[in-house]
């Protein structure tokens, strides 16, 4: 059973690792790497939702005549991947500006706004 559900187990573990990286690390770039892991975990979750045992990819070009996996999650995942790269790029440019202005990208130094 557990072996059968492997991708979902991986999703859970990766989500926890990603969240842990975000929460327990101080470095901004490390946090962004954590966000990347989290995004990958969610994408993996979406894709594994659509997998059907013994199915083939939902493309009729030169396909063998077998049952197909569900196509919708793959479409959703494509959108999600684009959003992920857009997010990462914007966050990294923020980090560069922070480095220029503050001289540090540790979370402990990003505390000029508080109370």
């Amino acid at each position: 059973m557990v072996l059968y559900n492997l991708p979902y187990v991986a999703v859970v573990v990766l989500t926890i690792i990603g969240l842990g990286t975000i929460v327990l690390k101080q470095n901004l770039i490390k946090i962004f790497l954590g966000i990347m892991i989290l995004e990958s975990a969610v994408n993996l979750f979406l894709v594994s939702l659509g997998y059907r045992e013994g199915g083939i990819a939902p493309i009729y070009t030169n396909a063998p005549d077998r049952v197909m996996v569900l196509p919708t999650p793959q479409a959703l995942t494509l959108t999600s991947i684009v959003i992920g790269v857009a997010t990462t790029a914007l966050l990294l440019s923020f980090a560069i500006i922070i480095w220029k202005k503050y001289g540090s990208i540790e979370i402990g130094f990003l505390r000029r706004l508080k109370e």
Partner: peptide, 9 residues
Amino acid sequence: PVPPGPNPG
């Protein structure tokens, strides 16, 4: 139009 079923495309 495309023929139904697997085809070369």
